[in-house]
Design a binder for these strands. Structure first.
Length: 590
RNA sequence: CGGAGCGUAGCGCAGCCCGGUAGCGCACUACCUUGGGGUGGUAGGGGUCGCGGGUUCAAAUCCCGCCGCUCCGACCA
């Protein structure tokens, strides 16, 4: 080029090829031999020990290179499946003006859970319904513009009162959230169905054993919703299900087919009796020989700051989510002790339908619908009434299913016994309807030129929960057992006594061959590290295959391939190692 | 936000009750050794004892306040 004017003056005419060497001598994987005290769950302990994450503050973690590789793989699976149902990926601001959240009333709804900036009226987005809706409002004007599926995979911020379980409940986390926009209810049903199927494929591909339960829509609003759950003792949700009938529901909405009480033919007048030391249902049963189910437990709750008297059967637990739904309230809370006396005339334990100090709207559980012969408090400390006929002596407007179901109760489909298990929510899909489009006036014109709010769905996946649940389900005493789909690397090469030229040459050749075959390989090329140490690290990191290169088998021209999940070991000729790895990985994927 | 516990070297911990030289294991550095399941040895480096105040001749240790982290509970779109 000397002497001629370069057409690319000022630009680089050559560039450096950077080939990241995935060698343990260079790669940053700070493994820990000991379990950090702060980590309780296996997934948390192993992510720390395998050098995937490090804590920065409560519920806030740095992703180290090995961990981030896994995150990116989970996100890649999600992207593929979202794109396959016609989703389009967005990148949205995490920093939001507070005004947009005021449009839907969610500044109040989120309350302290939303992070607010101190020096400007911005909030850190805990989710993105408002932002997506604002984009739709500006641009989706006709039924012809829909359906749309919009999604993003980004960091969300929630001021969790109590972060816990490692990355499972953090203050900052990665979430894929998708929003569907439809012109009709049928369109929403179809968008929802597509997401349901995509989610099943995503979790299956990530190697998770999961189940789907009917769920409450909570403060998100809307009609139908389902959660994708992974069973775990560390789970924060309870699910009731029966594997035979296929019934599965979050405890918040689960129901059972427990029969209602029968009405007795004999129906004498209600009679007051002294119960000086009976403060609970159990006391009444023990001290007065009353059948537990004949007790009408009375509770006072405030729904949107309006008091209600609630009757439950015996020791049945009130399900606050159901109460909220039955009353159509935004918030419910139990009455405080000092409020009880003012409203009823008695303290907790002596409240009932007769002689109430003030008139309260009443609501009762279906199990005691129209029952008679009941015992309940007299609204006077130390006294109860027996022979109460709820139709005659109470003023119950409506009966609703208000109970929390319990293990063993008959399921609502076939009457088979329900199991109740703890589970971690890894995804949640909602038919939002028009809650946000109405509030934000995101309207479109239909074929007739009539204006309607866009019909929306909302669909979330917690990325760190997928990773954590994967480890919860796939680990043993030695470490993680990655499924090839999201393993940070497919193969780890363990070189034993790499100081020996024979081992060094064989391991280097194998590494090059695996890389050439596009097998993601982590090469333990550390010198001066004992065999046991390398084996322990390999098991801890948990790559699906471990190729062991040592003098023992090299004498015969062989290497050893160990399958992490089964412990199976194969001695194969060096020249065949790559092909065997590919075949084994293939079989592990299915 | 209620209850409990913890904060001492990168990690795991002892020392604190009973005030007086800051210690152990692992990790790290150098050398030797070993070489198929966290080798063995020798010699080293590394600490505002979470922060602030108080008591005392003297505080990791006793007292007060604050902060951080973890667990149980409340809460959890």
């Amino acid at each position: 080029m000397e002497g001629s004017a370069s057409p690319h003056r000022g630009e680089r005419t050559s560039y450096t090829v950077i080939r990241t060497p995935m060698r343990l001598t260079n790669y940053f994987i700070p493994t820990l031999k000991e379990i950090p005290t702060d980590a309780q769950m296996p997934s948390h302990q192993l992510m720390m020990r395998a050098g995937m994450i490090r804590p920065l503050s409560a519920g806030i973690y740095s992703l180290l290179p090995l961990g981030y590789r896994v995150w990116k793989k989970v996100m890649a699976v999600i992207r593929e499946e979202m794109d396959a149902i016609g989703g389009m990926e967005f990148h949205l601001p995490a920093l939001n003006p507070i005004e947009i959240w005021e449009e839907t009333g969610r500044v109040e709804a989120f309350g302290d859970t939303m992070f607010h900036l101190k020096n400007r009226d911005y909030v850190l987005a805990p989710t993105h319904e408002e932002i997506m809706t604002s984009i739709a409002r500006a641009s989706i004007k006709s039924y012809k513009d829909m359906p749309q599926i919009w999604y993003q995979i980004q960091t969300k911020f929630r001021n969790e009162p109590r972060p816990k379980s490692g990355v499972i409940r953090g203050r900052q986390f990665t979430m894929k959230d998708a929003y569907s926009l439809d012109a009709t209810r049928e369109g929403l049903d179809e968008s929802y169905r597509k997401h349901h199927e995509a989610y099943c494929r995503i979790y299956a591909r990530c190697g998770l054993t999961f189940f789907v339960v009917g769920a409450s829509s909570g403060a998100m609003g809307g009609s139908g919703s389902e959660e994708f759950m992974v069973e775990s003792d560390a789970g924060e949700d309870l699910c009731a299900f029966n594997l035979e009938s296929g019934y599965a529901a979050n405890i918040e909405v689960a129901s059972s087919k427990l029969p209602a009480l029968e009405r007795g033919a004999d129906n004498p007048a209600a009679e007051k009796f002294a119960t000086p030391t009976a403060k609970s249902i159990d006391d009444l049963v023990a001290q007065h020989g009353i059948a537990e189910e004949r007790c009408a437990k009375s509770l006072v709750y405030f729904a949107d700051e309006k008091p209600y008297l609630i009757f439950m059967c015996g020791n049945d637990q009130l399900n606050e989510a159901k109460l909220q739904g039955a009353l159509g309230a935004a918030n419910v809370r139990p009455a405080r002790d000092e409020e009880l006396a003012g409203l009823t005339g008695a303290d907790a334990g002596s409240i009932g339908p007769i002689n109430l100090k003030s008139s309260l709207p009443q609501i009762a559980d279906l199990r005691i619908a129209h029952a008679n012969g009941m015992v309940s408090g007299a609204n006077e400390n130390g006294f109860h009434y027996r022979n109460i006929d709820l139709d005659r002596d109470a003023n119950i407007g409506v009966y609703h299913d208000l109970r929390i179901v319990a293990e063993g109760e008959p399921d609502p489909l076939g009457g088979r016994p329900l199991s109740v298990k703890k589970a971690i929510e890894v995804g949640h899909i909602f038919k939002l309807g028009t809650k946000y489009s109405q509030a934000m006036k995101a309207n479109f014109l239909d074929e007739k030129g009539e204006e309607h709010p866009i019909i929306m769905g909302s669909y979330g996946i917690g990325v760190e929960r997928v990773v954590a649940c994967h480890i919860e389900q796939r680990h043993d005493a030695d470490g993680i057992v990655w499924h090839p789909s999201i393993a940070p690397f497919h193969v780890q090469i363990t070189s034993l006594k790499i100081e020996s030229d024979i081992v060094r040459d064989a391991a280097e050749a194998l590494y090059a061959a695996l890389e050439a075959a596009k097998v993601e390989t982590l090469f333990d090329d550390r010198a001066g590290v004992s065999p046991g140490f390398k084996f322990k690290d390999a098991d801890l990191l948990g790559m699906p295959l471990n190729v062991i290169v040592g003098e023992k088998h090299l004498k015969d021209g062989n290497v050893e391939i160990k399958v992490r999940s089964t412990g199976e070991r194969r001695i194969v000729p060096q020249a065949e190692a790559v092909q065997v790895c590919l075949a084994l990985l293939d079989s592990l994927r299915s």
